[in-house]
Write a protein that binds this DNA or RNA. Structure first.
Length: 423
RNA sequence: GUGAGCGUAGCUCAGCUGGUAGAGCGCCAGAUUGUGGCUCUGGUGGUCGUGGGUUCGAUCCCCAUCGCUCACCCCA
């Protein structure tokens, strides 16, 4: 039997109702914040990600779905979205059209990791990016946007971790200090961190290894080593957040796994998730646009994992039910055509309707109406067929009355509008 | 990539240290002479993940493989 590829999932009812609701909330919130949607292709030239995310990162080094097409071009299924959005930004000269560009996206991403709770090989992210704003206001707006969005999506027990990873002026000095601190005691570090000491010393700070955690307690903090510009940016952002009632935890160990970040780095975690507790991550990338061949343009952004949002919010949400307004029941198959014509009219008038497609007995049709939790069963029997009427039965109460077809629409409108304000 | 646990009907699971499988729910139908839910009755449904091996005989033991789950790693 064919099966979906490891780490990929089919999404259908009832799960799909949660996805659809999430997507509509995202579109609504983004509209209110005046972000516009951007959709980019599912794959890009491999070198876009290699240069954008960084060759030394795990994502590029070992997790990408990379393949050659028939023309021998190396292509890669996007493992994250920022590099792709930046590519589009540059390609279409979007920075020339307006000085500030605010984009959001909902898109699948692909990384070949071992699946576990909250981690798939094809997963989905909703994300937002702002181009063209150097000051902390953009960072602030994005963080507040993420906060409000997650709240609307019923994600609770959130923690916001905040850090600054400095810029090209102050980070090299800090890394030097860091190496000077760790080098003499490197035997005490975990094997992986010893390896990182050469390649990417910052990531030692991020380690969860017990030995590393102890050693890094006394390591120099990036926050004490920021240049004036980074420092005032960071202080400005903190103040901005506090005055907007966003609480956060200063976490000088927060180092994100993508190389392009400068200054602000942040992460929302939720205790309603398993080990993979990061639900949203992002930061500033002031050098990326230039690095990928565009005019120097500051940028900030974040991405949230949709599967993780759904996982974290599940227990706070009532199960969605897919209620039917009308289930049409006929006594004999001769009435099928007439029933379908009536049904079509009701559907055109925005009622959710269904009828039996299997030529089943009246009894079976009633059972189905009940199973589908229809508000009304419309019953067309011999008598009603003659009189051009139909029985309208409210399933919850069992109450029923005979209604002339000419009056059916008005009757249902009144009944159903009364119960749920639809139409 | 590493580790642990688990793969038996559509779903949730049982199967007593080897004799080719069961329950509940679901689904279908009947009891009901045009009308669902409750109840009762009957029925449908599984090459026991896959491939080897041991054995007279394997869902059960052994090996391999694939998959699922969780954790490490990394990240959303």
């Amino acid at each position: 039997m064919f099966k979906s590829i490891r780490g990929t999932k089919d999404i259908f009812q009832p799960e799909i109702f949660r996805w659809q609701r999430l997507e509509s909330i995202v579109h609504k919130v983004m509209k209110n914040y005046n972000f516009t949607e951007i959709r980019t292709p599912i794959f890009e030239e491999t070198s876009l990600f290699a240069r954008g995310i960084g060759n030394e990162t795990d994502i590029v080094g070992k997790e990408m779905y990379t393949f050659k097409d028939k023309s021998d071009n190396s292509l890669t299924l996007k493992p994250e979205m920022t590099a792709a959005v930046v590519r589009a930004f540059i390609q279409h000269n979007l920075g020339e059209i307006r000085s500030v560009n605010k984009f959001y996206y909902i898109s699948p991403m692909f990384r070949q990791e071992r699946p576990q709770s909250g981690r798939l090989r094809q997963f989905h992210q909703v994300g937002a990016e702002i181009f063209g704003v150097k000051n902390y206001t953009a960072d602030g707006e994005l963080i507040i946007l993420a906060f409000d969005l997650l709240e609307q999506l019923n994600v609770k027990n959130l923690e916001l971790h905040l850090n600054s990873v400095g810029c090209q002026n102050c980070r090299p000095n800090f890394i030097k200090k860091l190496v000077e601190y760790f080098e003499p005691i490197k035997e005490k570090l975990s094997l992986e961190s010893q390896h990182r000491l050469n390649k990417n010393p910052l990531r030692i700070l991020d380690s969860k290894d017990e030995k590393d955690i102890e050693i890094k307690q006394n390591a120099p903090s990036i926050l004490d080593n920021l240049c004036d510009e980074c420092k005032s940016h960071y202080e400005g952002l903190k103040d901005f957040l506090l005055k907007n009632n966003i609480s956060f935890i200063e976490n000088p160990y927060l180092v994100r796994g993508l190389d392009y970040y400068t200054k602000t780095a942040f992460e929302f975690t939720s205790s309603d998730l398993g080990a993979q507790n990061a639900i949203c991550g992002g930061g500033r990338y002031d050098l990326l646009v230039e690095q990928l061949g565009g005019k120097p343009t500051p940028g900030v952004g974040w991405a949230c994992g949709i599967e993780r949002i759904l996982l974290a919010s599940e227990k706070y949400e009532d199960p969605l039910e897919n209620r039917l307004d009308v289930y049409f029941v006929i006594q004999r198959q001769d009435y099928k055509i007439k029933a379908f014509q009536i049904l079509r009219e009701l559907r055109k008038n925005n009622f959710t309707c269904e009828m039996d497609l299997l030529d089943r007995s009246l009894k079976a049709q009633m059972r189905e109406a009940n199973r589908l939790n229809a508000k009304f069963a419309l019953i067309l029997g011999d008598e009603e067929f003659q009189k051009n009427s139909v029985i309208v039965k409210e399933l919850v109460s069992g109450h029923q009355e005979e209604i002339l077809l000419d009056n059916l629409l008005d009757y249902l409108r009144e009944k159903i509008n009364f119960t749920n304000g639809k139409n």
